[in-house]
Design a protein around this nucleic acid. Structure first.
Length: 451
DNA sequence: TCTGGGGTCCTAGGACCC
DNA sequence: TCTGGGGTCCTAGGACCC
């Protein structure tokens, strides 16, 4: 804990939904839900208008539709979110070199490493307001909630207290006054399972947490969490703001609309996912030794199987072969709802050809037995002319200009003419066999991951 | 037809080594 | 002569975060 409130936590409000409302003016002031739009989708972000109807993150989209049928349900445009996030992080880095992003919409900033003349309350508060204003400018109107405190822990809690578009400054010395009345679930790392365990030990608030001994706490929630909570309950937190945290794993997974039962199809999916993982490893200059297969069965039982190679790889064929081998040992007879492939044990270098002969032998023994490709079950949206068109995606018409997919399915595609710059235009529906459809296309092929 | 996707960190047991 | 420890690596599962 520092003597000054020099740790800042910034959190963009309802980020994904806010980007959609910015880029689709007809959705401003209206309920917007971004997430999986298929039958097994969940809500990623709900706009505040949708939250008024009880729609929450992680809720199934099915339930969200029941609570708020008139909301716009969009599948998400991650390139747009990434680009906007990068603008925000640039604003923060212009203030201090010590910026630690936690996700696309959240970051810590160490103001002790900024250009500020001092760290008095008035000075840091003014800087926080400047940053909020700058974020609004560069993002085209997105709001951020900010917490300012003497530690990461308190700054993060503070940014949550006055959402949306709020600023909370915790004056050094008052940390425990703020903390003690709060429920333990406000502590990052305390989720439903830990809340339940603490409740059984008679602990609900931070004040009650502060009264139980460290030994007791460790008995109740385990060593690492127990020791952590013991200190956080006393507002003791010296964790530094750390920029450039290294990637530890890369993975791709998918949940399918209908449970998979065909082993050949599962094998083909795993092969494709291995290829995507390899592509992302390569584009980031990474390779890894441990390949993990993840399988979620029809009854939501989740299994993982992993295998570690003697040296790191970024080869799609190697990752795919290993993942398929791991799949072979699992009983999937009841049906599979999710399949995923991941690589961990990452190195930022690639094995020299020290063992090239070994690898070659291996490849000769097991030439790529290509599983026949079958179409994968749709996860969302409708497929026409080989592309899946999902609600919210940008499209361009050869003559009439830009718009976005309002809805797609049952042989009909609905498009709305509109961009952030052009006012809402007409909504048009096309049957999938309408020749007019050939004049629509997605804007750009998807960019491969940079850095 | 409840329950995403991409991550991080922790725990616990067994193998293996000294 | 019954029964050492500690350390590291690997695997599987689970809690949690956004």
């Amino acid at each position: 804990m520092r003597a000054h409130a020099s740790v800042l936590h910034l959190d963009l409000d309802a980020f994904f939904a806010a980007v959609e409302q910015r880029d689709k003016p007809s959705l401003r002031g209206k309920p917007v839900v971004v997430g999986g739009v298929g039958g097994r989708g969940v809500v990623s972000t709900a706009s505040y208008e949708a939250r008024a109807f009880g729609v929450r993150s992680a809720m199934s989209t099915r339930e969200a539709r029941a609570r708020c049928p008139h909301a716009a349900y969009l599948s998400g445009r991650f390139e747009a979110y990434r680009a906007t996030s990068a603008q925000v992080m640039a604003v923060l880095r212009a203030c201090s070199p010590l910026v630690e992003p936690l996700s696309l919409d959240e970051a810590f900033v160490d103001l002790a490493q900024s250009d500020l003349p001092d760290l008095e309350l008035a000075t840091v508060t003014a800087r926080a307001e400047e940053l909020r204003a700058r974020v609004r400018e560069v993002t085209g109107g997105l709001t951020a909630s900010v917490g300012l405190a003497s530690s990461k822990f308190l700054a993060k809690i503070a940014s949550d207290l006055r959402k949306p578009d709020g600023l909370v400054v915790v004056e050094p010395g008052t940390e425990l006054d703020l903390l003690r009345p709060l429920h333990v679930s406000v502590i990052p790392g305390v989720g439903p399972a830990t809340v339940q365990r603490l409740r059984q030990a008679g602990v609900h608030t931070v004040a009650e947490l502060e009264r139980i001994s460290q030994d007791e706490l460790v008995r109740v929630v385990g060593k690492a969490l127990g020791q952590g909570l013991y200190h956080l309950a006393r507002a003791e937190d010296d964790r530094p703001v750390v920029p450039d945290r290294e990637t530890k794993s890369v993975s791709v997974e998918g949940t399918y609309e209908h449970d998979l039962t065909d082993r050949g199809q599962m094998s083909a999916i795993v092969t494709r996912q291995a290829g995507e993982v390899a592509k992302r490893l390569r584009s980031n200059g990474l390779s890894g030794r441990t390949v993990t297969l993840k399988v979620r069965l029809y009854d939501f039982t989740t299994l993982s199987r992993s295998s570690t190679l003697p040296a790191p790889t970024d080869e799609p064929a190697t990752i795919a072969r290993l993942a398929r081998t791991l799949l072979e040992d699992l009983d999937t007879s009841g049906g599979v709802r999710l399949l995923g492939v991941g690589v961990s044990g990452l190195a930022d270098w690639i094995q020299e050809d020290l063992f090239a002969s070994l690898a070659d032998d291996d490849a000769d023994e097991a030439p790529e037995a290509e599983t026949p490709t079958q179409p994968e079950p749709d996860q969302a949206g409708a497929t026409w002319t080989g592309t899946t068109w999902s609600p919210g995606q940008d499209v361009i018409h050869t003559e009439h200009g830009r718009g976005w997919v309002w809805g797609a399915g049952k042989g009909v595609v609905t498009v709305r003419f509109e961009t952030a710059e052009t006012p809402p235009g007409p909504v048009r529906s096309f049957r999938a066999d309408d020749p007019e459809l050939s004049r629509w296309r997605p804007p750009e092929p998807e960019q491969p991951d940079e850095q």
